[in-house]
Design a binder for these strands. Structure first.
Lengths: 195, 195
DNA sequence: CATTGCAGCTAATTATCGTTAGCCGAGGAG
DNA sequence: CTCCTCGGCTAACGATAATTAGCTGCAATG
């Protein structure tokens, strides 16, 4: 692994565990096997470390969403696949997702603005998916905004409790949570097993 | 308002807005109209401020849950009312709930242990409600644990985006989210309007 | 073999923070 | 009127943090 990548991954772990503010450059250095000042031979600053992590995370999430939605045009199936991608990302990259959600306030401008923009775009895409299902008459839900918030929050919650070695396999969680999402919006139609 | 109460409420606002670590005693002092050292005439320490807030919050949440569940024995209705209480608390005390969820890691022992214990109890109560519904045959969900996590996470998410003066009235959100919860667990029966 | 630059280190700088010490004015009690 | 306590203030302390300066050894290059 690249030195820089190693530092980033160690920093991610510490940011997730103790929070950005509570993590010191000395902590990161110790975990990576060097003194704090030596880190500056590889990274620009602690803030830069956070910014890199968070921006990359949001871009990955958006990319996963785009890829998932592009595979079909059926509204129900689209929401299902978008949710699957959402949940899977939060399970597979829970540290990134966790930090991405919790440390936005530790980001300084201009990174903060950029990340918030990406985040807003991601939210809008989900809201639009729900809206499309309502318009097509296959979802029964009072507020597309509330429903999409609820679905997004499922992923964030997941990132807080999920563990790779826990009792729930990744695929099981992905399936279950996607099911939750479709139930949430009152999805009807052949694409839904239960109900 | 009592001086101490004033300080606590100001601290809560700052902890919610910038995080515990990023909030200084000088910040709190300025918002309350005095210098940092003067705060110590009223509160023991910054950590104590956080501990008081978080422990009170968890106790209130638990009390609200107990009260809500005690009003009926029907499993569906119990989960609905517990969720309503959960969501309503997170809407009405969103700062407390927000800080309560995010700053656990900033708590030092022994406060941390106590709060985690209360939190675990709260989670267990929800899981048991879901389990009871499954046992009674009125819920159709694969994992009581996942379902209860999902419902709890709805509240936490809510605390992050809800605003008293936003476009969604409290009652509307409470109703909608409770509906989400019942749909999540696949609730059947006369107590459910839609489906 | 000489050189150069990378990547580490220690020491120092600058800043900030929680908290304590000790002073002081106002205002109520006697 | 005097005294004492309450609640504010400034100054100071002790820690700790991010970051910079400047030194050094090693390894690759020629």
């Amino acid at each position: 692994m690249d030195r820089v990548e190693h530092i980033r991954s160690v920093a991610l772990e510490l940011f997730a565990g103790k929070g950005y503010e509570a993590t010191t450059m000395a902590d990161i250095g110790e975990a990576v096997g060097m003194r704090a000042p030596s880190l500056y031979k590889h990274v620009a600053s602690k803030q830069d470390l956070l910014a890199q992590i968070m921006e990359a995370t949001m871009r990955e999430l958006l990319a996963a969403n785009r890829a998932a939605v592009a595979t079909t045009t059926d509204p129900v199936e689209r929401l299902r696949r978008a949710t699957e991608a959402h949940v899977r990302y939060h399970a597979r990259h829970r540290l990134e997702a966790f930090v991405g959600n919790r440390e936005i306030r530790s980001l300084t401008e201009p990174h903060r603005g950029r990340v918030l923009e990406l985040r807003a775009e991601y939210e809008t895409r989900f809201r639009d998916l729900v809206q499309a299902g309502i318009a097509a008459g296959v979802f029964a839900v009072a507020s597309a905004r509330l429903a999409s918030y609820a679905i997004l929050d499922l992923g964030m919650g997941l990132a807080a409790w999920y563990r790779e070695d826990g009792e729930h396999a990744e695929d099981a969680v992905v399936w279950q949570y996607s099911e939750f999402a479709l139930r949430l919006v009152g999805a009807k139609g052949p694409a839904l097993e239960l109900n």
